[in-house]
Design a protein around this nucleic acid. Sequence first.
DNA 1: CCGCTTCGTGAACGGCATTCACTGTGTGAA
DNA 2: TTCACACAGTGAATGCCGTTCACGAAGCGG
Lengths: 242, 242
Amino acid sequence: MGESEDRAISRRDRQRQVTLDEITSSAQRQLTEHGVRGFSLRAVAREVGLTPSAIYRYYDSQTALVSAVALTAYEQATDALRTAADLTAGQHTRGRLEAVFTAYRAWALTHPGEFELLFATDQSLLRADEPAPSDPANLHRLYQVPLEVLADGIGRGEVACAPEAATGPQALTRPAAAVRREVAERTGHEVGEEPCLAMVSAWVSVHGYVALDLYGHLGAFLVDRKACFRRHLGAVLDTLGV
Amino acid sequence: MGESEDRAISRRDRQRQVTLDEITSSAQRQLTEHGVRGFSLRAVAREVGLTPSAIYRYYDSQTALVSAVALTAYEQATDALRTAADLTAGQHTRGRLEAVFTAYRAWALTHPGEFELLFATDQSLLRADEPAPSDPANLHRLYQVPLEVLADGIGRGEVACAPEAATGPQALTRPAAAVRREVAERTGHEVGEEPCLAMVSAWVSVHGYVALDLYGHLGAFLVDRKACFRRHLGAVLDTLGV
DNA sequence: CCGCTTCGTGAACGGCATTCACTGTGTGAA
DNA sequence: TTCACACAGTGAATGCCGTTCACGAAGCGG
């Protein structure tokens, strides 16, 4: 009987969890530092003081390891967006969306390796077997944040709710429709398919700026990339009608 | 005296050019097929029937080879845009820009490896020494195409030319301003800094859609990605005021 | 014809991911 | 307490990879 809490957790299990975390966080750090291409399973093993082959006791392959990192990266990105949304709760919708999308850019600039991993990599590095790696659900959770802000704005009458014009048979996939439903549950306000599509467009436009900025392509054109982001974001939010 | 044309071109020089082209085109094909990450110098050597070390008689390193491919990829992309612009010469500006940006998406979808190489890769693979690899000038040439279409529209009075409001000290870099000047020379019509920035925003928004689409992220949301692209593009062109 | 440049080879080095037979050791049951 | 076993970790081996280097075999200009 003795300890009631962690009776089932043996000494070895605890140690395993420790080294597993060590491996994963080392992998994330190296990914941030050296990028997707510079990533090396052996380097991770070196850093945690293990033989390369020992890593395979924890992850089936390099792919699985990277996928695990991708998973936490998705969560961290979503957290960053959600924090921005929470910090601005009660403010005008436009300002909140500005904050959320600015957080998106900030996260990308401070986590270039993870951004590359999630958004700019062919799936050869991901698509493992155990932890849903580039599972659409992760992306949905991210997208859900700005959508909830929009729903909140609709609920407070700030944002005009388009009269749900019939946009052909159906433009959103079933999983995306599920997101729409969950947003409605969480915020108590429906968001039509139309605004959902508009929000996808907005997110896409913001993503484009961030992606090009991150890889240095905007530096060829723009002197002050931060200021021009504000400008770009403003135009995007205008289009969104918020 | 004999042949006046290729007197200075020896038999060997010609053969060299042939194998060089063979290497480069093989590299481009493999890049398209296997992506940036799956690219292998040894595989290229295998395909052209050479020893890996023999490649170094033609390119200083794998980096140099990839950079050369990137250069031609830039040119091909620019050609694709320019063709779209030329084919629609005389039509309405909006339709022409639609054609140009649709060509951008089409090129990306048919050349995923090259797109990744140009826009979604950290410069570790590029930045060679000989042929300006990810030189901003290449990007400028690409960007110049839609800008010329816009200038043409301004010249024909279709597009309202904003009254050149002072947008702070200067938003465009000097090379970008040079593009603006060249556009003015080629089309005979000035394009203010303001429209140039708006066009950057438009291009950025389109790029975001293409990038996310290419990596399968939009499939999680949108049923008909082509139709939604038209929709997105329409909104972008509305913002542009064209 | 000769010397020189150039193309191509094959071996080698170090790094990579991955597999496998192996050793010790913590663990749970007898 | 003892025993068998599951399991973390090792180290060697395999087959990729990019890159270098010494060498042979041609084509080339004088």
